[in-house]
Structures are given as C-alpha cells and as structure tokens.
C-alpha cells in the first residue's frame, strides 16, 4: 500500500506530470500566472478540488452508472468549486474579485476530469485521494515557477514586493498573454531537453 502511494505520488509529480508530460489543464490556470499571489490561491483551490472530488468519486464509483458518469463527475467537481468560490468570497474578497471567472473555470480544468476518469473510477478511495493531491501539486508547482518568473520579469516584483529595483525595465510582454505561452514553452523545453531525456518519454506526447 505504502509503496503504491509513493509510486503514484512520484509519477504524478515527475514522470506523468499533468503539465509538461500530459499537457493537460493549462487552460483555466495559466491566465492567472502573471501575479504570484493569485497563482498560489488558485493552486490551493485546485489541489483541494482535485483531491476531494477524486475521493468522492472513488467512494461512489460502484453506484455511478457508466453512461452518465461524465455528468456525475462534473456535478461533484462543481460542488467543490462552489465551496472554494464561497470561501474565497468570504475571506479573500480582493483576490476573488481579481480572479473573476477563473475560480469557476476550475470545473472545466481537464486535469480534474482526467484524474477522475483515469484513476478515481477504478481505484480505492485512499489511493484516489493521494492521486488527487499529488497530481494537483504536480500541476501547481509548475504554475508557481512560471508565475514567479512572469511576475519577476513583468513587474519587477515578487508577491507584490519590489525586489529588482528601478534599473530594471519591465518586460510588459511577460504579464500579457504571449508571455504565458512563451514561459510554458520554455519550461517544457528545459524539462524535456535537459531533465527527461528518455526518448520513450517524449514519444508519448
């Protein structure tokens, strides 16, 4: 059991990483990576939803009819997203306003749906929970790295605090849409060109 948990965690963090190996779920969250703080909030919400929806779906898996499983999964995910949305509105109204529709868009994040389909529907609750947390984290740390560099180069700040100083000319392209695409591409390039060199790993994409 412990071995299995370890294996799932490691594969979700590195060899089967949702972002740079499976290229899933970049949609709803890449947009908020121009500010580190928003990314952290968004990532925590995402890990929460992925973990708990995986757990719930796994517990209900014997009663979910296969024909309508998509519908059931989406509904379960949506309920958790509503929870996250309400918590954010209550405790972090400013961040919630900035994130706007992107909190709601966690529902359609392909990772959550993908993990539910690929894992939670065939595995025990505890394993699914671990899988949910680890794939959520595997996804979040990539985004956090991207957000760190985008905020640093785009506004010269980290977490809203000026760190570089006035000599730095902000690369405004970094906080705009193309910056997100370029950063993610460079990240994938570095990871696949330097860290994972195994050609078998590359063929899968």
């Amino acid at each position: 059991m412990n071995k299995k948990i370890k294996k799932i965690t490691l594969s979700n963090l590195i060899s089967e990483n949702p972002v740079f190996v499976q290229i899933l779920g970049i949609c709803s969250t890449l947009a908020v990576t121009n500010v580190l703080k928003n990314t952290v909030v968004m990532s925590i919400g995402l890990v929460f939803v992925t973990a708990l929806s995986n757990l719930t779906i796994s517990m209900l898996r014997k009663w979910i009819p296969t024909r309508i499983r998509m519908m059931v999964t989406v509904l379960i995910i949506a309920s958790y997203v509503i929870l996250v949305d309400m918590i954010l509105k209550a405790y972090l109204p400013e961040v919630s306003r900035q994130l706007g529709p992107y909190v709601g868009l966690i529902i359609t994040n392909c990772i959550i749906m993908g993990r539910a389909e690929a894992f939670a529907l065939n595995n025990k609750p505890l394993l699914s929970f671990v899988d949910g947390i680890s794939s959520g984290i595997g996804y979040s740390y990539v985004l956090l790295i991207i957000a760190f560099f985008r905020e640093l180069m785009g506004s010269g700040t980290i977490w809203g605090i000026d760190v570089i100083g006035s000599w730095w000319v902000n690369w405004s392209i970094m906080v705009m849409a193309p910056g997100g695409f370029f950063m993610l591409a460079i990240f994938i390039w570095i990871v696949k060109g330097v860290i994972i060199k195994d050609p078998e790993e590359l063929k899968k994409i």
């Binding site: 740079f20 290229i23 193309p178 910056g179 997100g180 695409f181 370029f182 993610l184 591409a185 994938i188 390039w189 570095i190 990871v191 696949k192 060109g193 330097v194 590359l202 994409i205």
Partner: peptide, 13 residues
Amino acid sequence: GLEGAGITLIIAG
C-alpha cells in the same frame, strides 16, 4: 525537447 506541445505553445505565443 520542443517537439509537440513546446513548439505549439511558442507558435501560440
């Protein structure tokens, strides 16, 4: 290392 998703993202950018 840029095949597939990487180059697609750069083009999208």
